[in-house]
């Protein structure tokens, strides 16, 4: 059962304030991902304090890097159920976890950061992984 919307509003706002576009319906997801071109990061948000509480600040840090995705979109696991389920169909090779992040380039997942690679780590350490992935996959295209 989804949490009270008022409780998760700050977690949504934390994402949109760093420029992420919320995808709240399956149609939103299809519109963003079905014919995705260029570079994109899909952030699967979560209420989990121990992991998402570090993942969001990590992404904010990483987006200060010179090389970064052309667009950041986000779905909220446990909240926007249809949107999250549809988004996961676009990276079905990867087991679902939240929070998690998928880096896409021209519709292909080029890097995936799972929950287990986030939990228990500092935002700085997670951001370092992200920026390394940005450099590796996005440097020539942004």
């Amino acid at each position: 059962m989804p949490y009270n919307p008022a409780l998760v509003a700050p977690m949504r706002q934390e994402m949109t304030s760093m420029g992420a576009r919320e995808l709240t319906t399956a149609t939103d997801v299809d519109t963003a991902l079905a014919d995705q071109r260029g570079t994109m990061l899909v952030f699967v948000n979560s209420v989990c304090g121990c992991a998402a509480g570090n993942a969001r600040p990590a992404l904010r840090l990483a987006l200060q890097h010179g090389v970064k995705p052309g667009e950041v979109v986000t779905v909220f696991a446990g909240q926007d159920l249809d949107a999250t389920s549809r988004a996961r169909q676009y990276f079905a090779e990867y087991q679902p976890s939240s929070p998690s992040m998928a880096l896409l380039k021209d519709g292909e997942v080029v890097h995936f950061l799972h929950r287990h690679q986030i939990e228990g780590r500092s935002p700085q350490a997670i951001a370092a992984d992200l920026t390394a992935a940005f450099d590796r996959h996005f440097a020539a295209t942004v």
Binding site: E93, Y94, Q95, P96, S97, F112, H114, H116, Q117, G120, R121
Partner: peptide, 27 residues
């Protein structure tokens, strides 16, 4: 598991302490 995530076969599992040799973070 690290690259693609964990394909869960058990929602909940208890491993008896006597069987445990080592526990580490996956990462």
């Amino acid at each position: 598991c690290d690259k693609f995530g964990i394909r869960a076969e058990h929602r909940d599992l208890v491993v008896p302490s006597g069987e445990v040799a080592r526990i580490q973070r996956l990462i």
